[in-house]
């Protein structure tokens, strides 16, 4: 079996019930009877979604408009958290204010990591889907990709430190091989190390959805392209990439949302010196300033949703699946 089978075609119960399926309406002619089973079937997940996602989200938005002092959150309406968040954004011009700098830095990481994981992930997926003939080998190699996930996120991150540090393996090799006279400092606790760790951690999230899309491409289409005289690049660009788009978009959503909200990787690999949107929230929470933390969470959510909306504009995932 291949992973192709595990991707659901639009056969989920709610959608099926809401769409006026003639097989259902035959037994129950009334509109209510037609719609009800679907709602009932969707309800358990709907309730979970409501209780653990919608309600907390509403609370976060509500709290972000509360006032606060050193030791308590005061339930009175104020926009203080938002106003202070954007402090200096106008008055400091042309200097960029903290919040824009922070989001600038986060978005930059987001873009770099997205671009790198996309290229690497696409290449790996392409190799798996088109160069490996046997399904067994394909599956084995796909499983090999998951090996880094056998240890925790933090350990995978920390294991870079002895490698990249001032007295780490790479610097020892460089200095020992007389490539450089002084250890290279920017390998660790820098933007480089943050991006490296992100790419290492999250490329897999690109590989699997893209591989999944590619595995479902009808091989006859590629043969047809070849027969029609397309060269390798033309086939890639005009056939494979358009058909792998849903995978690319799903992988991108994974990577973008994780990188936008991350503060641990940025903290550990950036030596806590690099700002990130998640870090701002953490600092506020630790100082017991819940309303500004909530306001920052709302801001992060808006930005992330904005990016995802843009991505889904490029490809309608629901249609493509």
């Amino acid at each position: 079996m291949t992973t192709t089978d595990s991707i659901p075609t639009p056969r989920n119960p709610a959608a099926a019930a809401i769409a006026s399926d003639p097989t259902l309406s035959r037994e129950d002619a009334s509109p209510l009877g037609r719609v009800l089973p679907g709602w009932v079937q969707a309800m358990p997940f709907g309730l979970v979604f409501l209780a653990f996602f919608v309600v907390p989200l509403i609370l976060v938005v509500v709290v972000s408009f509360f006032d606060y002092n050193d030791y308590e959150t005061i339930p009175s309406f104020t926009t203080r958290s938002y106003v202070e968040n954007f402090e200096g954004c106008v008055s400091q011009l042309p200097d960029v204010c903290t919040i824009l700098k922070t989001y600038g830095s986060t978005l930059k990481f987001c873009f770099l990591v997205w671009a790198l994981t996309l290229v690497i992930g696409f290449t790996i997926a392409y190799f798996l889907a088109f160069h490996v003939r046997s399904v067994t080998v394909q599956m084995t190699l796909a499983l090999v990709c998951t090996i880094p996930f056998w240890t925790s996120n933090v350990i995978r991150m920390i294991s870079w430190i002895p490698l990249l540090g001032r007295n780490g393996l790479i610097n020892q090799m460089l200095v020992g091989g007389h490539v450089v006279s002084q250890p290279v400092e920017w390998l660790l606790y820098s933007q480089f190390s943050v991006v490296l760790a992100f790419v290492h951690l999250f490329t897999f999230f690109m590989v699997i959805p893209i591989f999944n899309s590619m595995a479902r491409i009808d091989k006859r289409l590629i043969e047809a392209a070849y027969d029609a005289g397309a060269n390798g690049w033309q086939t890639l660009w005009n056939v494979i990439i358009p058909l792998a788009k849903p995978g690319i978009v799903i992988g991108s959503i994974f990577v973008v949302t994780i990188v936008m909200g991350d503060f641990i990787t940025v903290g550990v690999m950036g030596g806590e010196q690099v700002a990130s949107a998640g870090k701002v929230i953490e600092t506020r929470l630790n100082a017991l300033q819940f309303p500004p933390a909530a306001a920052n969470a709302v801001l992060l959510l808006v930005v992330t949703l904005g990016i995802i909306t843009l991505l889904t504009r490029v490809v309608d995932i629901r249609k493509e699946l």
Binding site: E84, E87, K101, A275, K279
Partner: peptide, 8 residues
Amino acid sequence: RKWNEFIA
């Protein structure tokens, strides 16, 4: 707030 600015 200023500390966050320092980190950023």
